[in-house]
Design a protein around this nucleic acid. Structure first.
Lengths: 251, 251
DNA sequence: TGATATTTGTTCGTATAACGCACATACCGA
DNA sequence: TCGGTATGTGCGTTATACGAACAAATATCA
């Protein structure tokens, strides 16, 4: 692409939007400028533009995003049939298993939740469409990485910040690559408290009718209820069933 | 705001993103140009910028948004504590009522879902955070409109496309304004199949500790299971209970 | 089928608008 | 009162949007 086909003003503006989030509901111009590493004047123009378009509120000091920005993300969710197609299957899965079920796709080194059927519990996991988790230590992430060519998967692992969220987290790239090979053989990935202590999950890939992996689905359960060793026995057949059903309806 | 404080390139780019959605997963440059009413050359630069930043894919003909755009909407969801605070209460509400529970805020003439606890049913309603419904015919929309000054509410109704989704939909602005006054008195809004045949719902406003209405929550039920006349008797006390609990925790 | 419209994608020169620096002003806590 | 920090503004430089023109693909019709 020629450099002249790039609209800097647009790219900068998107960066400004992403500066929000992560418990940063309100930003001043200077704060946003620091976070985005853009010039204050530029950030100010972008924020005022957002405010003028109704994507942000401005009280003279702080800027805060408005619900209108959800339209941007929703443009993807509603434009992509995948989340809507998968949702009813997740609902079934959640009901039959009595646990939370989710679907996600890979975006860089992270998995992005595109649909979710959560279980009503006292302990509820705070994940919703749009939530992100590092791929290397999430069950769906492992499955999605395993679906890639070895070199591509390795490249993503090398780009990832492989930190040990718990004492059980696998952080050695070579160990992880071995794990991916095992997943390709078994057709499923099991995570035993690698992301968070007390949380286990099992995931399988979702293929469309041409056999291309388009997403992953998983079932998550508290380790106190379901030990990792039992995840396969309890849930794999349910997941495989859903996998087969979806392969027939996804084009 | 001075005109020079507006970044056209950014505003146009956002418009291009919003051109997707509504079952338009892939757009050509010309299609996007028509939808946005922008010059083809401008749209092309915006789309190439999106592709370059990873927000879109380009196969030489069609552009499609990638999951990365969810980060934009998620910036709002994760930056605003409201959805996360409300979620567990919705889960409880859904469990106790055996029906779907949702929370939303007003954005222009529409309500935007910010959290949801859906019931696993054969008939599942396809709404998720980011989904939008016209305010005038949704229970949460009525409640949120009722919380505004009369003139503001009226202005929004006048801007709304008041169409009859079903034979039961109220479309007369004056009738709707009367309804809003009734809602202010009763403290809740009941919708009897005004949005979709077979769907009833009841909503109450959610106030923070200073008494400002910051959102609305509702319970939706199939009319076949729960006639509209029974909605109040069955669910109002549950909703009021949640309303009281949230008023204490929302700042 | 071949010829002709019509639509779509791309390139290019130029008027114009955004950028970022520097300075001026306002705000806040010590 | 005085630094330190944040916001607002003017201006020269630089980059972008515009519109037209061209090329390529697609549709229309004899």
């Amino acid at each position: 692409m020629r450099e002249s086909d790039f609209v800097n003003g647009f790219a900068r503006g998107l960066k400004v939007i992403e500066a929000f989030g992560e418990m940063r509901p309100k930003l001043t111009i200077a704060e946003a400028a620091k976070l985005t590493e853009l010039d204050r004047a530029t950030v100010r123009r972008c924020l005022l533009t957002l405010a003028d378009l109704g994507y942000a509120d401005y009280d003279g000091k702080f800027f805060a995003l408005t619900p209108k920005v959800l339209r941007l993300g929703h443009a993807y969710l509603s434009a992509t049939p995948l989340p809507l197609m998968i949702q009813p299957y997740l609902d079934q899965l959640s009901e039959k298993s009595g646990q939370s079920a989710s679907a996600s796709v890979l975006d860089g080194t992270e998995v992005v939740y595109i649909a979710r059927a959560s279980q009503k519990r006292v302990m509820s996991i705070n994940l919703s469409p749009g939530s992100r988790l590092p791929a290397y230590c999430a069950s769906m992430g492992r499955v999605l990485l395993a679906a890639l060519a070895e070199t591509d998967a390795r490249r993503i692992l090398d780009r990832s910040e492989l930190k040990a969220n718990t004492p059980l987290t696998k952080t050695d790239p070579d160990v992880l690559m071995d794990e991916l090979r095992r997943i390709r053989t078994d057709g499923c990935a099991v995570i035993d408290q690698e992301l968070e202590l007390g949380l286990c999950s099992i995931a399988v890939p979702i293929e469309n009718d041409r056999g291309r992996v388009v997403a992953a689905i998983n079932i998550g359960a508290p380790a106190a209820h379901v030990p990792a060793a039992e995840m396969i026995g309890r849930y794999l057949s349910l997941l495989k069933e859903t996998q087969r059903a979806l392969r027939l309806v996804l084009r």
